[in-house]
Design a protein around this nucleic acid. Structure first.
Lengths: 364, 364
DNA sequence: TTGTAAGCGTTATCAC
DNA sequence: GTGATAACGCTTACAA
């Protein structure tokens, strides 16, 4: 005799999970019959099918997905990689993905790159070894070289990027129209009568911040306003950098009458400084942020912000994945899905005399 | 000929992933040798080993975890189920688990029960079918019957509960000492000189809220104070219910001089009502919450709160799992790990004349 | 409608 | 130190 069970189970209890072979033996039929009965195949007698199902339930049979996946050459596992899972944005996107995936019979393997390319590379390897049916990824901040993703394509594993995507249009991706969101927010501030709108921007090597800045610029142009360089300040967009930037803006000979921040935390910092200096919000300075974080509804006044449609992004990413699966061999040209953000207008930007809005108004 | 490749690949490109057999054929050695070389087995010549490794790299060989798992009878997949992944608490716990797991070579499959027992049952089935090496779970709010978990034990799959655990001590679990956290927070309020401390509690059928209430009661007793029933209000602990409860408390003949809320959202609601009625916080009413959510540092004044050690909980849960794996057949008696919460004192509860604290003080 | 048997890619046992 | 080969549990082409 050659190979034996991995765990010979020195103890008395064998406790081996029941397999199709067990069911077949018990019922005196072939494994084929069992397989067909369980997978609802058409050529199977209703009587036999019932018998199999009944026995399966009785013996508490659990199909082994690993074995099926090995045989079929594809698993029901979906790899999802995000920079980190904490924080509203990625958690919500993952929620969206998981919900859609589980409905479609997929299980989600979650990985974090921790904003580290090396970790990102390792995760890709791990996912490929796990034989995932597809990979959905939002790239790390430190990723500039995308070779490790070529490997995914080489293995013919469907690959979808979301939110943070490599430059170029040779990839399948779901992203937010950051430019449009920023444009909407800035236009809203201008529509309130503000004419000196400042901008707190993020690092320009990231697409999202470049686009948000562009949306801001486009809005100014739409209103025929001159661009004032010293009203634009770039930073890491933390609460603290928002404070610093705001202090700087207030020190200008002619301070702004509105601020559009490319992030909510910086908007919060700005708000704190404004209040501490006795500047009224929104009367003296109107304020809008980006991301629609929970804090926007906690700060006083509530902060107007651009919602990123996190959950829809997750759903869209999964849908794109399923399309790739269905297209399979058919060389599908890479597709980019662009989601439209939604402006939530709150008290921090309303000049209309309304003191506070508890329920924010989404603006089409 | 019988069975053939699942995807005969009508197109010209076969693109089959390279297997051990391919390496063996190429090098003219047996598969055994390949396997040994790759898994760093002791009986293998250094020369052959190098040759194998080199060829593997050259042909871009990727081990198939599915096949290995099937053969070995155990995978490197870890099932994690939470009620939902959004929100600071569970996201952080999952972060902790994933970080520890990936370091140890495990991949994490994430599931959400959406607070629904039926979904929870389905998820358990899915995880078992995926042949996970273990399951880490925080049970849904609607779970009262725990039979589906018996199935996990029957399959000899290590099972660890965290935070929300079934009653009884027959399970492996990691939990927070909610009583101690509540006790600390209440004692802190009492130490500030407050003598009429109210309590906003959650649904008592949940252990965590029962324990937080108990901690509150213990603190009162410690200070020799009488329990006043009408200072205790139970609700769902949302922002709105916090508002309602606070309004009710302020309407009392003798309103409280402090409030300990079993949740941060309700504490925020209470704060809003206090401020709108011109009651000074903390001078007239001191305030403390539970969970140390991000909002506690956004609200003005910042809200004192009990931190739940989310990440440590994730790490502890994974560590408990590994212990179970190592103990294996050795019938290990179920173990409960209890984590100590940490009080973050902020401006909402400080009578010492300090107006605001930007950096919260953790209290041992 | 049912059965036979090959094969997915790996690991482990035995023999050399 | 190396090789031959069975086995893990499942799906499926083909035969009956």
């Amino acid at each position: 005799m050659a190979a034996r069970r991995p765990q010979p189970a020195a103890s008395s209890e064998a406790a081996r999970p029941v397999s199709m072979a067990d069911l077949a033996r018990e019922l005196g039929v072939s494994m084929t019959t069992i397989s067909r009965a369980l997978s609802d195949h058409h050529s199977i007698g209703p009587a036999t099918k019932q018998a199999v199902l009944k026995l399966a339930k009785k013996l508490n049979y659990q199909p082994n997905h690993l074995a099926a996946a090995l045989r079929k050459g594809r698993s029901q596992l979906l790899g999802v990689m995000v920079p980190y899972i904490e924080g509203r944005f990625f958690a919500s996107v993952v929620h969206g993905i998981e919900t859609a995936a589980s409905r479609a019979g997929y299980s989600v393997i979650i990985c974090q790159s921790n904003e580290d390319v090396a970790q990102e590379r390792r995760n890709i390897e791990t996912l490929l070894r796990a034989q995932v049916a597809g990979i959905l990824v939002s790239v790390s901040r430190t990723t500039t070289d995308f070779q490790h993703f070529d490997k995914v394509r080489k293995h013919k594993v469907p690959l979808v990027f979301f939110d943070r995507v490599p430059a170029g249009d040779g990839v399948n991706a779901v992203l937010l129209d950051d430019r449009a969101g920023a444009y909407q927010a800035t236009c809203h501030l201008l529509a309130q009568g503000c004419r000196r709108v400042a901008h707190l921007g993020g690092p320009l090597h990231l697409n999202i911040y470049k686009n948000r800045r562009q949306g801001y610029l486009d809005a100014l142009q739409e209103y025929g306003l001159e661009l004032e360089e010293n009203l634009i300040l770039h930073s890491s967009l933390t609460v603290d950098s928002g404070r610093e930037s705001m202090a700087q803006l207030l020190a200008l000979p002619t301070p702004p009458d509105a601020v559009f921040s490319a992030g909510d935390s910086a908007a919060l910092g700005a708000l704190q400084v404004l209040k501490s200096q006795g500047v009224r919000v929104p009367e003296d300075v109107a304020l809008a942020g980006f991301s629609n974080e929970a804090l926007t509804s906690v700060a006083e006044p509530n902060i107007t912000s651009v919602d990123q449609r996190c959950e829809e992004m997750g759903q869209a990413a999964f849908r794109l994945f399923t399309e790739l699966v269905e297209a399979d061999g058919g060389a599908l040209t890479p597709r980019q899905v662009v989601l439209q953000p939604q402006l939530f207008v709150r008290a921090s930007s309303l000049h209309s005399g309304v003191e506070e809005l508890h329920n924010a108004q989404p603006l089409a």
